[in-house]
């Protein structure tokens, strides 16, 4: 009887552990919403989301410029990161001489291991002056931010796309080649479309990564609170808004930063759910 009791007891403990792991997500939601929602209700969701002015000193909290800023930077990062990442994934799956694949693979591992502050710093000392000197503007800009982000999301995009390309049955390739397609036509017309749900999932996760990046963006975006009008303008994102001001904010101001976190959290949850649903469909 004691053995059975011990087994039951262990099972309950493990269940408890598993639930406490996911209860962290609930706790996060509870505390972020608890701090942020009151302010959103106080000034009205519409003013908060669509207001163009962020002047904490005067109690004006509109985060539209940050939302726009976040999407510009993320869009820019995908514009560059997606073709680059997809090309690298194809390189790893299809055309690689083994030595080149190994080098690229370790390069990607190292890229994934570089701390984001280092990316930000490198952008600041190398990219920002280049942009300022050759393209004009302050240099601290959406363009610099997007360039850095596109490198930062590469490991995510490459590894997930590569997995989904690798998971395809070999018969797809053999079939296409047997019908007289060139190797490239096989890749581009058969393999890539067949792996598309995995590739889309990689894009979404890359997007999440880009939207969530904070420290690197604080260092290179310039952080101006205004509607960006070109890729050479400086900007502020949802994350950097929190990161810059959290250190000294109090009262309503602090709540407004948590409210910014609420919006960020909701966007990310939406993207996550999308990615999870998509990758589940790939399995099923």
């Amino acid at each position: 009887m004691t053995v059975e009791f011990k087994e039951k007891f262990i099972e309950k403990i493990l269940l408890l552990i598993a639930f406490s792991s996911i209860s962290i997500l609930a706790l996060i939601a509870f505390f972020i919403f608890g701090e942020g929602l009151p302010l959103i209700w106080k000034i009205g969701p519409k003013t908060f989301l669509l207001g163009g002015r962020w002047v904490p000193g005067q109690g004006e909290f509109g985060i539209l410029p940050m939302i726009i800023g976040s999407f510009w930077v993320t869009f820019g990062a995908l514009l560059l990161g997606l073709p680059l990442g997809l090309a690298c994934a194809i390189f790893l799956c299809e055309w690689t001489p083994p030595w080149a694949g190994m080098i690229l693979r370790s390069a990607i591992q190292v890229l994934a291991g570089i701390p984001s502050v280092i990316y930000g710093f490198w952008g600041l000392v190398v990219l920002v002056p280049l942009v300022r000197n050759y393209l004009g503007g302050p240099g601290l800009s959406i363009l610099s931010g997007s360039l850095i982000l596109s490198i930062m999301i590469l490991p995510t995009i490459i590894s997930i796309s590569e997995d989904s390309l690798k998971a395809l049955p070999p018969s797809y390739k053999a079939g296409a080649l047997a019908l007289g397609a060139t190797h490239w036509e096989t890749i581009w017309r058969v393999l890539v479309p067949a792996a598309r749900s995995g590739i889309v999932a990689s894009i979404i996760l890359g997007m999440g990564r880009a939207l969530g990046e904070t420290m690197a963006m604080i260092m290179i975006l310039g952080n101006a609170v205004k509607m960006p009008s070109s890729f050479l303008d400086s900007a502020r994102t949802l994350t950097t808004n929190i990161g810059i001001e959290m250190g000294y904010a109090t009262g309503d101001h602090r709540q407004a930063l948590f409210a910014t976190g609420v919006i960020l959290f909701l966007i990310i949850m939406f993207l996550n759910t999308l990615a999870i649903v998509l990758s589940r469909r790939r399995v099923g």
């Binding site: 792991s21 962290i24 969530g212 904070t214 976190g261 960020l264 990310i268 759910t273 990615a275």
Partner: peptide
Amino acid sequence: CLAGVPSII
């Protein structure tokens, strides 16, 4: 979902 939550959150 937890895996996707940004570090600032």
